[in-house]
Design a protein around this nucleic acid. Structure first.
Lengths: 150, 150
DNA sequence: TTAAATTAAGACAAATTACTCTTAAATAGA
DNA sequence: TCTATTTAAGAGTAATTTGTCTTAATTTAA
């Protein structure tokens, strides 16, 4: 798989929050139920995004998480980096540590091109962009499609 | 990671055999040592490729494996499919089962484009093509670069 | 015929990823 | 102040991937 499950869950939750974007906090319970993601697992993942400054959290009744200013400006690339790290965009397709233009593996040239097209795609896709588009096009964020962008 | 470790090992071994291409059998011991891959693990992986008809094996002294006729004509795509399966080329980037042009996830359109560029890259790259090019360009197949295409 | 070399197959172990559970800390509101 | 609600943190469990080991089957050659 291109992205880890953690990353996919993190992206879906980020898009959920981007679609709300009223500045309020949304509880992890609500998010996990709406998106059909394990509550505790999602908690861990969003803690990473909070630690990274892409989200903010608030404890106690009516607490929850929301996108920070940084998070509101973020692209999918930022979210992927925060959760999966930069490996996808830096590593050799054959996993060879010394691979580079100096001493390339057989896939090097092709792969850096493909890899950069993945990177560009994620960098040009902003959370708020999708949230806006989602309201028109009713994208699905869950397996059963129960989530609605309103 | 884009490809599993099994897949990467399988690709590297396939390229190794393509670079020899004399029709002889090469022992797994030799291949695993040259490419610095665990012998038993590599055995398992190449058994898959043998089961898939991309390689042929022969037991006993001077036994080993070689690319079959099918394997000699194969592209990296064929090898990836045989080891990792078609998931990379069929699945939704967000892992949503029902995702498609009917009910797309937010990444659907971008992802099928990116996904197809990965697919095209792997499909246009044949084992023998790389073997030929490797002899000119001395690509690396190992971390330490000890393998030479001759 | 026997021993050595080799792949095949399956059980096992370790590492990583995915997920769950429990307890602690913070906060709001009664 | 007390209780309920919520995130934080960490330990624990399960599943998957990666890697190892042992035994069996096949084949060659002495």
């Amino acid at each position: 798989m291109l992205l880890s499950k953690s990353c996919v869950y993190g992206l879906r939750a980020s898009l959920y929050l981007a679609s709300k974007s009223g500045g309020e906090f949304y509880s992890l319970k609500e998010i996990s139920e709406e998106l059909d993601i394990s509550f505790h697992f999602l908690t861990k993942i969003l803690q990473q995004l909070t630690a990274d400054g892409l989200m903010e959290s608030y404890k106690g009744p009516n607490g929850g998480v929301r996108l920070s200013d940084k998070g509101m400006k973020a692209t999918l690339y930022d979210m992927v980096i925060a959760i999966d790290g930069p490996g996808l965009f830096t590593q050799c397709a054959l996993g060879l540590p010394g691979c580079g233009s100096q001493e390339p593996c057989p896939l090097h040239e092709s792969w850096i091109e493909t890899r950069s097209s993945i990177e560009k795609m994620l960098k040009r896709t902003s959370l708020i962009g999708i949230a806006k588009e989602g309201k028109e096009k009713h994208f699905r964020l869950t397996a059963e499609g129960q989530f609605s962008w309103q």
